[in-house]
Amino acid sequence: MKLTHDEWTLDHLKVHLQYAVDLEFWTIPFYMSAMYSIKDRSDPAFQLIRTVVNQEMLHMQCAANMANAFGLSPTVEAPTYEGTTIPHLDFGLDDPKVIAPYLPYTAEIGPLDLEHINAMCLIEIPDYDTGEKQVELYAGTEEYGSIGAFYEALRLGASLLKENIRGGVQQVDAFAPFYNNMPQMVVSESRSDGLNQVILLIELITEQGEGQSKTDTSIPSVFQNTADDMSPDDDHFEKFNMIKDSAKGKGKLPATYIGKPRGKYTAEDKKVEAILIEQFTELRGALKGLFGGKNPENFFPVMASVGGSIRNCWKHGVTPKFS
């Protein structure tokens, strides 16, 4: 349901902010699983995905910081990876010519193969329509035509409710040293000054990855990683296309571990699968605590352990499972 500016409420905004957290979080296990399936960690594909995963974590932090600034401590639910359902991607709304190069795709967890790199490109595909548009606000987050339109609505919606912004509330700042050109990655101020910070975070998300409306794929220097990115000026879509294009040139994607049929899982295989599920559940709790101001000491160790467990699953021939 389309909303007028007057109908737009803080509750609507909070729903949108939670959705932003969900959107960003969905990509992390999906991308990490593809990355850790690559046997050779020095392969550029591995390294490119690594940089995107790090930025998805950053985006999640940004979304959560914005949510907290508006009084919402976000939840972190287990994402669903089924069929071809990627949150908020309805390719029926897109130009078939734009989508065609990235078919077929899958939304199920798996190794870096054609269907997964296609899905990764589709998730990050920019909104090429750069013309003047009326920004619409909807009650339901699923009503937006693209992630770009969603983030535009978030920007507008935040602006309309800027008086509700309270700076310094449960802000997380884990990535600042990796972005020397970025003034700040938290919402430390209230109201108008806080809104400037909120909009900066939205721009960071959309310029690095999802939802940008632009004709080139380079990231402005302010949003570029200055520490550990082999291709800091390329956005996610460009990075994933580099992998896809490189595979075309070589005739294949990098060698990956392959998941065996579940029926062939050994007791050891089942054990490592269960450990991953257990640790991922623990991670969701830690993230919720992190964005809820609880400063959980185990957050990063658990996050790292999940990475290890994904790798461990692949080494056992087990396709990672998160819930």
Binding site: Y36, D40, R41, S42, Q47, K271, V272, I275, Q279, P301, A304, S305, G307, G308, S309, R311, N312, K315
Partner: peptide, 21 residues
């Protein structure tokens, strides 16, 4: 398998070309 060092995921492997990572 339950530790942060599972699969030696964060350890550079001296037998592979990983010294630039």
């Amino acid at each position: 398998d339950r530790t942060i060092m599972a699969a030696l995921n964060f350890l550079r492997n001296p037998n592979k070309d990983e010294t630039n990572i």
